[in-house]
Write a protein that binds this DNA or RNA. Sequence first.
RNA 1: AGGACUAUAGCUCAGUUGGUUAGAGCACCUGCAUGACAUGCAGGGGGUCCUCAGUUCAAAUCUGAGUAGUCCUACCA
Length: 929
Amino acid sequence: MEKTYRPQDIETQWYQTWEEQGYFKPANNPDADPYCITIPPPNVTGSLHMGHGFQEAIMDGLIRYHRMKGNNTLWQVGTDHAGIATQMVVERLLEADGISRHDLGREKFIEKVWEWKHQSGGTITQQLRRLGASPDWSRERFTMDDGFSSAVQEAFIRLYNDDLIYRGTRLVNWDPKLHTAISDLEVISEEENGFLWHFKYPLTDDSGHLIVATTRPETMLGDTAVAVHPDDERYQHLIGKTITLPLANREIPIIADDYVDREFGTGCVKITPAHDFNDYDMGQRHDLPLINLFNDDAQMNTQAPERYQGMDRFEARKLIVADLDELGLLDKIDDHKLKVPRGDRSGVVIEPYLTDQWYVKTAPMAEKAIAAVEDGSIEFVPKQYENMYFSWMRDIQDWCISRQLWWGHRIPAWYDDQGNVYVGPSEQDVREKHDLGDINLKQDNDVLDTWFSSGLWTFGTLGWPNTDNNPNITELLKTFHPTNVLVTGFDIIFFWVARMIMMTLYFMNEVPFKTVYVHGLVRDSHGQKMSKSKGNVLDPIDLIDGIDLESLVKKRTAGLMRPKDAAKIEKQTRKEFAEGIEPYGTDALRYTYYSLASTGRDINFDVGRIEGFRNFCNKIWNAARYVLMNTEEHDCGQDGSQDYELSLADRWIISRLQHTENAVAEAIGNYRFDLASQAIYEFIWNEYCGWYLELSKPVLWDENASPALQKGTRRTLIRVLEATLRMAHPLIPFITEEIWQQVNTLAGVEGDTIMLQPYPEADQNLIDESATADIEWLKSVIIGIRNIRGEMNISPAKPLPVYLTNGSHEDQTRLNANRQFLAKLAHLETITWLNQGEEAPMSATALVGDMEILVPMAGLIDKDAELARLNKEVEKIQKEYQQVQGKLSNEKFVSKAPEEVVAKERTKMSDLETTLKKLALQQQSIRQL
RNA sequence: AGGACUAUAGCUCAGUUGGUUAGAGCACCUGCAUGACAUGCAGGGGGUCCUCAGUUCAAAUCUGAGUAGUCCUACCA
């Protein structure tokens, strides 16, 4: 093995082998419990970001864990066509050549999108491979592949036939830039600074005017009423009268409706049913006409007075305000903060707009979806997200699923010239079914919301709806559906999770998954959202492969929305990554994700931590080198014979391994990858490397040691390493495979890959508390001596004489059993056991229980330095002593606290007392020097 | 307006059922080329557990109020 761990040397190579060998496929074992995760399909044209990285790491950890546990494990993979997002990308590319999609026409444009998909659609899946993800690539799906498309069509048709899809003319959220309707969820409302315009509306009978307040003056041309609160005394006398709408010169009624908030503005509201959701409702209640003022671009149409026709809505606004001012009807303009609805993709202000769209009737589906979570069929982790889910589900609105786009699943509906609609899988089919002959039919132009198809993801990918004529597919669904876990971000609980639950319950009559693991957002180390404009984006691939400073600066400053941010971003990047980013490798990246994966909070990604975990990998690497050096070409006792003997240290590390295996299993069971990673880290670095490897040296390097003992140590070294590799494999797949290949035979294990080895499980019989106690004693003695050495600045190269005094019989037994370990690890020249009455030289002292460890001061230790060290120690213990004493002198504590708690404090107090006495004696004798 | 979450070392985070000397990694200080590893080893310093009040013999932990931050839902013409 190379002296230094270099991830790039091993990672891609192992991945290729795994994939080629088909290790990612489900085990061909129908008796094994199935375990299945479907990937949240990334946008096919997207590229990997830190959020994906995190999510994939969690899924792959779970998948590899269960695969090793022996489950029949399927990770279903695939990508999403992502309607609007993808269409926009391709449109932008065409735009660069001066072409619009309309120049090309629908078919040609769609061809272009497919071209683009074939070209760049592999990026994300290749990047998933870099992360070590182990899905079954042979089953990769795309939401617009033939099979899935027919699933989408089938779903639409069934819902339509069951009266759960309908077409209606209603107000929708209209994106005037993208020329499509969007759902409520795709509208982002944020507070912006605006104005509240107050206009005078003259009463028709010339008896005066009333004043309305509005944030959208341009819609006044479409007003069809003015509303006041029925109990508002100020306006009682006006109810039933009319005003003459300025500029439009229409007579409109003054109506009463308790929706009106008397406190807001003037208490008079202009009602524009065609351009505001609340006004629409009120229009319905009062039977008001709808006057639609806009065209698709949100320009004034011919319903507006000629003067304004063809104007953009915001131009029209200016002119209307000016005109009203001219007429003396502008009362005042107040500054006003308001929520402005914008399209999540286009960023432009969304218009409530009257159009024909397709809707899913969600209320009946939501009922079951709520019940499934209430009765525990589906569980959210962490649980608090269930409330979020319930509150949305209980107030769910019908879902607008038609989009005026070209890229997506076209709605399987045809219209005849009379506008009758026929829904079916194909034109031919609806002709036959409805006996239409050869009349003119035209297919609906719209496509379906991307999330409509995503809603079918868990079962559509497993072959639905073709279950009748293909038994294999039935088998797949039967085996792997419902899936076990959905790993996803909280941001798409409504977009996706909720809808998936509704759709799956409807079509499959079962839940899509049993658990929803919800993770937070991956942010930068200061908790800032990663964004191009902030220049704080980290690319997971850069963390794996490394990147030099200049390339990083270039990458971060290229293609900015506001080019003037470049200077700031460059400066900040040069400061933070003066040396660029080192190649940390996939394993280190994954470990960093795991260590931050406590549930219920966002993840602040700190580059400092990935370095630490790269070092951790290097630690494992070197530990393996040490083990191999000492076991290769030796008999490691794997032949089944019993001619080996386990040392105390051997029994201890085996015992610790069992504890760790328990802790890891528990942590993963609770989706606490942070705890799992910590337990593994702790075990490998501190226990296995820090103590056990050191404890193995005195045995292996002692020519006089018994061969049986040496064999036992070799056997333990290699077997614990091998088990540890398996334990860590789901988190750090590459380094564990690489090393495992070299240690497996020595450890008496056969197999082609660690991936398919059994996951280690704790054996309670191997937990050895007495070995643990003995090693703890040994560690305390060593640490006591090291402390003196460290604090007194005694060179580690200097072998020390040490005396032990006032020890118990047990101490003496332990000493005799561990002399060699002690001498080696504390670097001692001599160890002398003093019986009662035997004189010790003047020494620095450390205490282990009642036993005193003495390091003679002569020539090594300065009197004042030792006094200072002792003082520090005394102060620390005194503080503790006071605490305990305080508790015990509190009568209530003694009488009310459980007995064992009190007893514990009593023991502690007496221990502290003796310690203090001893330290005081020590101080006294040193002072007398 | 309603709701959720977060606040622990300089930084990023753990802290299970109330009883721990409140921990880890990084950073910091001191020493060390010891035959796996300087991507290392040994030792050390560093905390008003956001604030206040309450429950309790006992609160980082439970309850309430407040402060700060993050986010979600609804909506104010």
